[in-house]
């Protein structure tokens, strides 16, 4: 175990996003962790569950509420080699959204696949 803790360790990181954007800072500051974390060359996945799916809604425009439109960062994640974005189908559907409403390419998975994603992860962040 000590050996493995030396540098070069790659763990499966999962960021679980369950909050809507803008009403609170959590979604924005979670994305900042993802961006910093990308430099650490870990195996990174992002999961969008519950109100977290609203973070990915396209056409967000915060110009009239004077906050940063961080939703644009999602489309830049690819440049940071963060490519595994998973959206829970049940969360999307219960909010009246379809994949076409989203701003980036994601993999829509059902709750049993989401269950597996969570179970297979090693370090899980919730903000």
């Amino acid at each position: 175990m000590e050996e493995e803790l030396e540098s070069g360790v790659v763990k499966k990181f999962l960021y679980i996003n369950r909050r809507a954007p803008h009403g609170t800072v959590y979604a924005h500051e979670a994305l900042e962790v993802v961006l910093i974390g990308a430099a650490f060359e870990q195996d990174v996945s992002l999961a969008f569950i519950d109100d977290g799916v609203f973070q990915l809604k396209k056409d967000q425009d915060t110009s009239e509420i004077n906050t940063k439109n961080f939703s644009k960062i999602f489309s830049a994640l690819e440049m940071y080699d963060v490519e595994k974005l998973y959206v829970e189908k049940e969360s999307l559907e219960s909010r009246g959204l379809t994949e076409d409403d989203l701003s980036v390419d994601v993999k829509v998975i059902d709750s049993s696949e989401m269950k597996k994603l969570i179970t297979d992860s090693e370090v899980i962040f919730n903000f």
Binding site: R18, I49, D50, E90, S111, M114, K115, K116, I118
Partner: peptide, 12 residues
């Protein structure tokens, strides 16, 4: 909040 509900849906 639905945290418990979601937890119950997504735990193995």
């Amino acid at each position: 909040k639905n945290s418990l509900e979601t937890c119950l849906r997504l735990i193995d």
